[in-house]
Structures are given as structure tokens and as C-alpha cells.
Amino acid sequence: MMEKTIALAGNPNTGKSTLFNALTGLSQHTGNWAGKTVTMAAGHFEYQGQAYRIIDLPGTYSLYSNSTDEEVARNYIILEQPDVTVVVLDATSLERNLNLALQVMEMTNRVVLCINLIDEAMRLGVRIDVAKLQERLGVPVATISARKKIGIDGLLEKVGQVASGQLIPEPAPIVYSREIEEKIKMLEPHVVRLLGNRFPPRWVALRLLDGDTDLISTLKSPAGAPAAEAGEVMQLGNASCH
């Protein structure tokens, strides 16, 4: 059976590595500060007979390639096209965290949102209406506490459904100002003509408007030649030495 790939994306310090450790049994360094995970870690696990390979992407505030981290995370999602991208969100600061989730949802529809630290949110009296979120966003949403291992099964259930194609999320697009939307419309057909549908045309059009030159060079590299690039930043297991 084919191994499915899961990418973990999210803001720094939302507990991606904790979730990664909980799933794989590895021990990536964890701690409460932004920027701990400096390498992409890969691990494996099995759930309900399906084998998964899971990649812990560096935590980023956005995916606009302002920095190497963001470029690495962005390129992984767009070039490697994992079977599922799980966006890990901090339940206590959803507003900023959703910012990244919406960006991911522009890049791929195979998204599961994973609201972590739900125990902290409860403690602080933050109530999250999951059904409402799913309805507004058009993608499955799971709430978990990675460190207390609460809700992991529910998350994997949703991941499995998306990975197998049983569930095809339809992310609600962000509607931009009329002016931007018009420009996107003008560019989109050309994007499709030049690149086909390998990359989401609307997203490419937006990136072009935003002046993302890194993306151009990435797309120009022969067929995206992603494997080598991803391998270079890949590090198995724990990054620390002793």
C-alpha cells in the first residue's frame, strides 16, 4: 500500500512539533518559544492500516517567502504536494493563526485544520464553534491537545478521509478587493496556459501580483525539481546532538 504524506504547517509555537512527536514517537525539541524547529523533520506512523509519512515544516507567520523558513515551507506544499496539509493553529490566538491557514487553503484544497491547545483555550474561557468554522472555511476542522493527546484520533480520522479522497474539502476562497479580483481574473488564464493546472492558478496569479520573484525562479527550475531541494533541508529525528 502506498504511504501517504502529511505536512504540518502553522505559526511558530503552535505545538506542531508536539503533535509530530505524539504521532511518530520521535522526540523533536519542543518548548514555548517561536523558532525552535529549524529543520524539517520527517517521521512515519500508521493509523487504521494506512501508513503515513509526516513532515514537520518550520513554523512561519506566513507563506509569502519573506524568509528561508517560509520559502522552505511554501515550496514543500506547492511542489511536493503532500496528500494532506495539516495546519496547526493555536486555539488561544486563532485570529492570527487563521491568517496562515487561509494562505494554505489558497495553495491546496487538501487541508485539515487542527486547532491545538484546546485545553488552554478552555481554561482561558475561549469557546470555539467548530461547526461554524467548518462551514465558513469549507475544510475539516479538528480540535486537539497534542501534549495531553486529546482528540488525536478525531484529527487522524479527518486526515485519513482527506488523504484517501473520501472527503474533498472545498476551501472558501478569500475575496479580495474588486480591484485585486479583476487583476487576478486577467492573469489567471495566462497562468493556466503557461503552467497548466499543476499549481493553483489563482494563487500563482496573486503571487505574481505581489511581486514574488522567488516563486518565478522556483517554477522555472526544471519541472519544479523539488526532490533534491527538499532532501537538503530534511533531517530525520532530533536535530540536537547531545
Binding site: L94, E95, N99, L102, R127, D129, I174
Partner: peptide, 24 residues
Amino acid sequence: IRDEIVGDIYRATHSICHEAVKYE
């Protein structure tokens, strides 16, 4: 244009959170 893009995304998340997140 970046300001507008990010601004629009934040407006979207703001409105979503306004509906889906309650602070007791």
C-alpha cells in the same frame, strides 16, 4: 498590493473569528 492582500485576509479571519470564537 501586499498591504491589501494581507489586510483582506485579516478582514476575513476577523469576521470568521467574530462568528466562531466567543470569549467567556
